[in-house]
């Protein structure tokens, strides 16, 4: 069902080559934001154009693509992006994390550990971790160049002074291989530990801001913290009400207007897999409740 009016995966080969060059540079300098000439895509800036361009530059006809948004395969924007590649590249798609060769994601890292050979492509809205401390691009690039990251810790210090703890719950800044401070995109900090020493290739694309950065396999990623206020990956203190998982990131769903709530895995593939394997949570059909 490939649309013949467009080149494979929409972008022309010149553009793909330009993006691949940026990707190689990004992999060679982990955590460094490589400027690239982002193209206008047929979806709006801020809706994953960076991720889509990176995916387009990586896709081959043999690839199996998975697209998730908020961990789920069936959220509207994930559906839209998956359809785009089905239409323009005709590649096979899957919802199974283990079967995918390329996974494009917005805001989550799948629960199932990734393996060597897989590529995880993140959609990034604001690639600059220092942006809300210093609005000027010319200045933040200088700060990265000179490793002037004191200000980043001032922010964390202020959090603790005011709240008794670091009050950043997503897009939690990390330091890559002891050099660049990087924004891991708005994933919950629960996912931060999965960034480090991951066998998969992790690529980050920010279309509107024209930046690409990357984590090569098995690269060291440390979440910023203080020795006496160490980083903690947190989640809601519940089990999944559908599959009973204790260690997965949860969505909170409001079930009535009387305070009724349930918690379900945000990773829909992970949850469905567990249910199929016979695990059941509090509210599952045939479950304990």
């Amino acid at each position: 069902m490939t649309d013949q009016a467009y080149n494979f995966a929409y972008l022309d080969e010149q553009t793909k080559r330009m993006i691949r060059r940026a990707l190689l540079k990004a992999l060679a300098v982990p955590g460094y934001q490589v400027p690239f000439a982002s193209r206008e895509m047929p979806m709006p800036y801020g809706w994953g154009t960076g991720g889509v361009q990176v995916t387009a530059a990586c896709l081959t006809p043999e690839d199996v693509l998975k697209v998730i948004d908020q961990g789920a395969d069936d959220t509207t924007n994930a559906v839209s992006i998956r359809k785009f590649f089905q239409r323009t590249a005709g590649v096979a798609v899957t919802e199974a994390t283990g079967e995918a060769t390329i996974i494009q994601t917005r805001h989550r890292i799948p629960e199932q550990p990734l393996k060597a050979g897989q590529i995880l492509v993140y959609q990034v809205p604001i690639p600059e971790p220092l942006r809300f401390l210093e609005p000027r691009e010319t200045e933040t690039r200088k700060m990265h160049e000179l490793e002037e990251y004191g200000l980043m810790h001032v922010k964390l210090y202020e959090d603790i002074a005011r709240h008794g703890q670091i009050a950043t719950s997503y897009a939690y800044p990390v330091k890559v291989e002891g050099r660049y401070v990087m924004d891991p995109s708005p994933i919950p900090k629960f996912d931060n530990p999965k960034l480090s020493v991951n066998p998969a290739i992790q690529l980050f694309g920010a279309g509107r801001e024209q930046r690409i950065y990357a984590l090569p396999p098995f690269c060291n990623v440390v979440s910023l913290d203080f020795d006496d206020h160490p980083f903690r990956a947190t989640k809601a203190a519940h089990d999944c009400d559908l599959c009973g998982a204790k260690d997965s990131y949860l969505d909170e769903v409001i079930t009535d207007d009387a305070g009724g709530r349930m918690y379900v895995c945000s990773d829909t593939d992970f949850c469905a897999g567990r249910q199929a394997a016979g695990h059941a949570g509090r509210l599952a059909a045939g479950g304990k409740a």
Binding site: G46, W47, T49, Q70, G71, P125, P186, D251
Partner: peptide
Amino acid sequence: GFLEHIKLPHYVDFQA
């Protein structure tokens, strides 16, 4: 694009 993207799902960040 960036303005309108804030109407996309942000369940995960909001939950955090």
